[in-house]
Amino acid sequence: MMTKVEPHPAHIDRLLEAGRTGEAIAATERAAASGDKEALFRLALWHLIGEILPRDLARARQLLRKAREAGHVEAAHMEIALTVTGSGAQADWSTGCMLLQKLSSIDAAAAHQAQLLTAMRLDAFGVPKTLPKAEVLSASPRVTLFRDFLTEAECAHIAATSAPLLEPSLVVDPASGRQMPHPIRTSDGALIGPTREDPVIRAINLRIAAISQTDVAQGEALTILRYRPGQQYRLHLDTLPHTRNQRVKTVLVYLNGGFAGGETQFPSIGLTVAPRGGDALVFDNVTEDGRPDVRTKHAGLPVRAGAKWLATRWIRARSFDPWRGPEVPL
């Protein structure tokens, strides 16, 4: 009587659930050595996450390449993202775009990204050749508006990329250690980190760096917030206490229109900005000597009808490794 062999992923999951991690790793490595694309992808993820196996970005890149060559589409997308962002190796815009173009012949998502990139005016490194005109709303503290910063298609791509990741905004209760609803931000949020920073998102982050006059490596992961009726971001400062690498600037990009409310308000300087899809707002969070500027305390007013989508990038004072966090020096 023949013994039924379990599908590889299920077998590995059972080993992990049983705490037999060493056996799971060995079985996955054997399958990967035989060219199993799912095993190659799983090993790559383990090396990226750094829990089951030590974090090794260079090794993860090698495994993703092999998985992509074996026909794993998700691995191909992830390899492209890491290539253009420079995780595990030097950032290589041209190679990432070449891989995207190749993938676009068999994958609709890649074809859509390639189409969006074609419409952008970019140099050989993905940096925008032109920028929208700056409209200074406040000279001190400096608040600047860039109208039509993103196209409707670019806004839709950011929203679609983040939609599956959206979760209610939570914080950890210091008393109980449990997660609880965020007391300031009553929205749903998501981060677009290095593994999902596809060439379109990367080009947008490079555009954000250009209008904020900062290096792209100073920016935190692009954060997407969705506000439904009644949700808001109460009055707050974007600076952080006890940090070695302060948030010196904030860039807000309004991703849609067609909703009521949701204005960005700076009470200390008497400024209220009405959201318009595609516009970007840039403001300084610190004074010239690096101290938090209380005049930039701001709020996202409650949405009265519809849904407001917003992309936020907090810009730190210095560049940092996104895998180790903004507080760890390069």
Rank of each mutant, 00 (worst) to 15 (best):
327 E>P: 09
208 I>V: 15
289 D>C: 06
271 L>M: 05
169 S>W: 10
94 S>D: 13
73 V>C: 04
32 A>P: 03
158 I>V: 15
42 R>Y: 07
67 A>T: 11
233 Y>P: 01
209 A>K: 04
105 S>W: 08
71 G>E: 10
184 I>H: 02
110 A>W: 01
107 D>T: 02
328 V>E: 15
106 I>R: 13
11 H>F: 10
163 A>Q: 15
8 H>L: 13
179 Q>L: 11
293 D>W: 05
91 A>C: 07
122 L>G: 06
236 H>T: 06
42 R>C: 06
55 R>Y: 05
62 Q>M: 12
195 T>K: 02
38 E>W: 07
169 S>H: 09
27 A>V: 07
282 V>D: 01
240 L>V: 11
327 E>L: 13
43 L>H: 11
300 G>V: 00
26 A>N: 09
86 G>Q: 10
95 T>M: 11
10 A>I: 12
68 R>S: 15
251 V>W: 01
50 G>V: 03
112 H>S: 09
155 C>E: 08
166 L>V: 10
187 S>T: 05
174 P>R: 09
247 R>S: 05
243 T>W: 05
203 A>W: 00
58 A>F: 09
130 T>L: 08
6 E>G: 01
130 T>P: 00
218 Q>C: 14
165 L>K: 14
246 Q>L: 03
248 V>N: 04
304 R>V: 09
215 D>C: 07
256 N>W: 07
153 A>M: 10
111 A>I: 01
201 I>Q: 01
232 Q>F: 01
207 R>C: 02
135 E>N: 10
79 E>T: 02
179 Q>D: 12
14 R>A: 15
252 L>N: 07
102 K>V: 12
208 I>P: 01
179 Q>R: 15
135 E>A: 05
189 G>M: 10
157 H>P: 06
185 R>K: 13
249 K>T: 11
157 H>Q: 14
25 I>K: 07
170 L>I: 12
310 L>F: 04
175 A>K: 14
213 Q>G: 08
85 T>Y: 12
245 N>L: 05
23 E>Y: 00
329 P>G: 09
86 G>V: 07
218 Q>L: 04
257 G>M: 03
70 A>T: 04
191 L>G: 06
34 S>Q: 10
302 P>D: 04
242 H>R: 12
223 T>E: 08
38 E>F: 05
287 T>C: 08
254 Y>G: 01
47 H>N: 14
254 Y>H: 10
288 E>N: 07
180 M>A: 14
192 I>F: 01
300 G>Q: 03
161 T>A: 15
76 A>I: 04
225 L>E: 11
40 L>T: 03
215 D>N: 14
143 V>C: 08
281 L>C: 05
